[in-house]
Nucleic acid binder design. Structure first.
Length: 104
DNA sequence: CCTATGACCGTGA
DNA sequence: CTCACGGCCATAG
């Protein structure tokens, strides 16, 4: 997760894949659940679900995540279904980094 | 060993 | 766009 660049986001499944098991997305979330926000120095805020939404249920954590993402340049829009990020544009694509920004 | 659970995912209606 | 379903697999009990 520390390899995810600031200003980009990754999905749980994506992280799971990078970790070796594409189908262990749930475990990724389970790990994040136990993260010590400050001390562990991992950009947990860059991990969102496959729909571009925030998955945490911890009160306040969602707001914090949105704030953190915005502070690093990621656009988070407010929809009826809650905060949402356009993966089309903000998802980290390790294999495409050298091609520059994704054009919408 | 067996069941229930969950910061998930993809597909199909 | 929304919703339901089935699949996943490490953990906890």
């Amino acid at each position: 997760m520390r390899t995810i660049p600031a200003g980009k986001v990754a999905t749980y499944g994506q992280v799971a894949l990078l970790a070796g098991n594409m189908r262990a997305a749930r475990q990724v979330g389970a790990v994040l659940y136990g993260i010590r926000e400050v001390e562990d120095d991992v950009p947990w805020q860059r991990v969102i679900n496959a729909s571009g939404g925030i998955s945490t249920f911890k009160v306040g954590a969602g707001e914090l995540q949105v704030a953190l993402l915005r502070s690093e340049g990621v656009e988070v829009e407010r929809t009826a279904a809650g905060p949402r990020v356009a993966l089309r544009r903000w998802q980290w694509r390790p294999d495409l980094e050298r091609f520059g920004p994704e054009p919408e």
